[in-house]
Simulated assay, not measured.
Amino acid sequence: MNLFKIELILLDIVTPKKRSQMMSGIKSKNTRPEILIRKQLHRMGYRYKLHDKSFPGKPDLVFPKYRAVVFVHGCFWHQHHCHLFKWPKTRPEFWRKKIQGNVIYDEKVKEQLLGMGWRVCVVWECAVKGKSEDKIKEVAEAISYFLREDRLIIDI
């Protein structure tokens, strides 16, 4: 075994098979941050559609009454510049291509939705993760304000 292979083994503490299992278990919908947000919005009286496939990008929440959609993005998968995002040390080329592809796709979806006359709200995982109920209420209030105003795009 050469030195390069030894270094790669030391960086990852699980086998490639186990890592694959772990990554395939990550959900793309009904995540904890998404559920916390939608429960709070529902308590506030808002009604919405979930993961509507008729929209580009299948938004997490669709508010037809307000012509607005909400995406709840994971900071890692969508490259948010916060403390939760770190480039993986193993297979950096693969991850750079994968994550940058997600970012390009997100922008394309946003443009398509705006072109259709819909407004777009993106809530980042770090705005909700590990936060108190009061913080989640603040995020829901920000979404509520967005729904009632005329802004086209907002990031929370």
Rank of each mutant, 00 (worst) to 15 (best):
M1I: 08
N2C: 07
L3P: 00
L3R: 13
F4L: 07
F4V: 06
I6V: 12
I6S: 12
E7C: 03
E7W: 07
L8N: 15
I9S: 02
L10M: 12
L11P: 04
L11I: 03
D12G: 03
D12Q: 15
I13F: 06
I13A: 14
I13T: 14
V14P: 01
T15C: 02
T15F: 08
S20Q: 10
M22G: 00
M23F: 05
M23A: 13
M23T: 07
G25Y: 00
K27M: 08
K27W: 01
K29P: 00
K29C: 11
K29Q: 13
K29R: 11
N30K: 12
N30Y: 11
R32W: 02
P33L: 06
E34S: 01
I35P: 00
I35K: 04
I37S: 07
K39D: 15
Q40K: 14
Q40H: 02
M44H: 04
M44L: 13
G45C: 01
Y46F: 15
Y46A: 10
R47V: 04
R47Y: 04
Y48G: 04
K49I: 01
K49C: 02
L50I: 12
H51E: 11
H51W: 09
D52M: 00
S54T: 15
S54I: 07
F55S: 04
F55Y: 15
P56E: 12
P56G: 09
G57M: 07
D60G: 05
L61E: 02
L61C: 03
F63N: 04
P64G: 03
K65P: 00
R67E: 08
A68M: 06
V70P: 01
F71H: 08
H73R: 08
H73Y: 13
H73V: 05
G74P: 05
W77H: 12
H78D: 03
H78A: 04
Q79V: 10
H81G: 01
H81K: 14
H81M: 07
H81Y: 02
C82I: 04
L84C: 03
F94T: 10
R96C: 02
K97E: 15
K97L: 06
K97D: 14
K97Y: 03
K98P: 01
I99A: 10
I99C: 13
Q100P: 00
G101S: 10
G101T: 10
V103S: 05
V103W: 02
V103L: 07
I104T: 13
Y105M: 13
D106Y: 12
K108F: 04
K108N: 10
V109Y: 05
K110H: 07
Q112Y: 01
L113F: 05
L113R: 08
G115W: 03
G115Y: 01
M116A: 08
M116V: 00
G117M: 10
W118Y: 14
V122H: 04
V123D: 10
E125C: 06
A127L: 05
V128C: 12
K129A: 09
G130H: 08
S132D: 09
E138H: 11
E138I: 02
E138A: 13
A142C: 12
I143G: 01
S144T: 14
S144C: 11
L147C: 09
L147R: 05
R148S: 14
E149N: 15
D150M: 07
R151S: 12
I153S: 13
I153V: 15
I153T: 15
I153K: 15
I156L: 15
